[in-house]
């Protein structure tokens, strides 16, 4: 087995263990189509998943009313990629943004990003989160879709050490390791996904 295939397999298994959904894609276009697709398939009342179906205190409930239509955010993409995504979204009536996350604190349907690297051993995405927009996009969204180029995969976190150092030396910096969706087991040790951040994490493995 080639080394790259081995890492892809390892990554897929490990990310699966933390209930990330891993799918291979052949091109960035395919990734965009995939993303718009799940946004469209996403229940129109998706926001219910995030607690709005429950009775909330008045202030918190007000946030639930803030969201007009489905929102996809994709900050920090190369211009043409974002344009392509925006066009796909427009076809399906999805609001697509690359900035202004703070206006959408009530919730975002999909956050779309491209990872800087991946760590196979733990199924981890490494994301340069210097941009506040990107950080918020990946935290406020209900579904985070992230493209991971297989050429950036490494086996262990130590193999990513130099990369982490390079980012941290170039401060101010904010680097994130993301492994699976936001989770908690704080009530009776029962696992619950999506306590603050995304309820789902999709990782699209792009062979390059």
């Amino acid at each position: 087995m080639s080394d790259s295939k081995r890492l892809v397999d390892l990554f897929t298994v490990k990310a699966g263990l933390v209930s990330a959904i891993v799918a291979p894609v052949k091109s960035l276009d395919e990734a965009l189509a995939y993303t718009v697709d799940i946004c469209e398939k996403k229940d129109a009342c998706q926001i219910l998943m995030s607690g709005c179906e429950s009775d909330l205190s008045t202030g918190a409930g007000a946030l639930c009313d803030e969201k007009p239509s489905k929102v996809m955010v994709a900050p920090g993409l190369p211009g043409e990629t974002f344009a392509a995504l925006k066009a796909l979204c427009a076809d399906r009536g999805i609001h697509c943004l690359d900035s202004g996350m703070r206006k959408h604190l009530g919730g975002i349907d999909i956050g779309f990003t491209i990872a800087d690297a991946g760590i196979a051993e733990t199924g981890t995405l490494v994301l340069d989160s210097r941009s506040e927009e990107l950080r918020l996009a990946t935290m406020l969204c209900e579904v985070h879709v992230c493209v991971l180029r297989t050429s950036t995969l490494r086996e262990t976190s130590f193999d990513a050490e130099e990369l982490v150092r390079a980012y941290c030396k170039d401060g101010p910096a904010y680097l994130a390791f993301v492994t699976g969706a936001s989770r908690t087991a704080d009530i009776e040790r029962v696992l619950a996904i999506g306590v603050h951040g995304p309820l789902e994490l999709h990782i699209l493995l792009l062979e390059d």
């Binding site: 933390v18 051993e121 733990t122 506040e132 980012y167 401060g171 101010p172 910096a173």
Partner: peptide, 28 residues
Amino acid sequence: LRVIRALPRNATGQAITSYVSWITGPGE
């Protein structure tokens, strides 16, 4: 990185926590 290999595993049996944030200085 070395401590992170042990911390979540020893704490809850997880290979790694969902998030590890490396914050270097005040950003935007």
